[in-house]
């Protein structure tokens, strides 16, 4: 090739073309979505007084998200639910509806993920909720074999402190059956560190349990 100007322009054009088509077009089409109510009125306006979705993340959940990022959970767990009929996400009970672009607008870092060595977590807070869910997550994080025999998720012992029971056992302690091979020595208990507490609160906060105008939860 002898026409250097053409070569040069072609190199710049091809990258500028995809930058415009993929990045700028995305930014324009869905780069500044707003929170909205679950349903809109006849004029397409938000319902006065209804709560706005998606919800803002709470402080402790955000701290937990940082732990999730630091440990690289994304490399085995996605956070996106595909529509009914495309994969078995909804049939497996991983979510109530497909996630859409607006579900992610409150997140500073989006953790869609591309791998499901473990299950999807977009709606894990809906699957394991309340005190029961909290207890399940702590057992599972301390050692996944406690709740999910045969799992290949690594245990996270460094998120917990095994310490001697002084006086009364702590109410914070992770409940581990005494006959389990993973239970601490007698006289010892497993206490979640701050990071474990935050991480579990984050997991409990992951819920797509609300409708959006473009993605309603349909009654079964």
């Amino acid at each position: 090739m002898k026409n250097i100007a053409l070569l040069f322009c072609g190199i710049l054009f091809t990258i500028a073309f995809s930058y415009t088509g993929v990045i700028l077009a995305s930014q324009l089409q869905f780069g500044s979505l707003l929170q909205t109510t679950a349903e809109l009125d006849e004029d397409g306006k938000q319902m006065e007084g209804d709560p706005l979705f998606p919800r803002r993340e709470s402080g402790i959940a955000l701290q937990g998200k940082q732990v999730y990022i630091e440990l690289g959970c994304i490399y085995c767990h996605s956070q996106q639910i595909r529509r009914e009929g495309f994969g078995a996400d909804i049939d497996r009970g991983w979510g109530l509806r497909a996630t859409v672009a607006r579900d992610y607008i409150m997140q500073d870092r989006v953790l869609l993920g591309t791998m499901r060595t473990g299950p999807d977590l977009a709606h894990v807070g809906g699957r394991f909720a309340g005190d029961g869910g909290r207890e399940w997550h702590h057992q599972h994080l301390y050692n996944p074999q406690l709740t999910s025999k045969g799992s290949i998720m690594p245990p996270y012992p460094f998120l917990y402190e095994v310490r001697e029971i002084e006086g009364e056992p702590s109410p914070e302690a992770v409940k581990i059956p005494a006959d389990s091979p993973y239970s601490p020595k007698t006289g010892y208990e497993v206490i979640p560190t701050r990071r474990a507490v935050a991480l579990v609160e984050y997991l409990l906060s992951l819920k797509v349990d609300y409708s959006l105008p473009e993605a309603p939860i349909l009654d079964q």
């Binding site: 072609g10 190199i11 091809t14 990258i15 073309f17 995809s18 088509g21 993929v22 077009a25 995305s26 089409q29 869905f30 996106q80 595909r82 529509r83 495309f86 994969g87 497909a98 996630t99 859409v100 672009a101 579900d103 992610y104 869609l112 591309t114």
Partner: peptide, 21 residues
């Protein structure tokens, strides 16, 4: 140069992005 540029979006097939993309 022309085609590879646009191909990356296949990593989010089925994901929460517009179908045209």
């Amino acid at each position: 140069a022309l085609f590879y540029n646009w191909a990356g979006i296949h990593h989010i097939i089925g994901g929460p992005v517009p179908v045209w993309l």
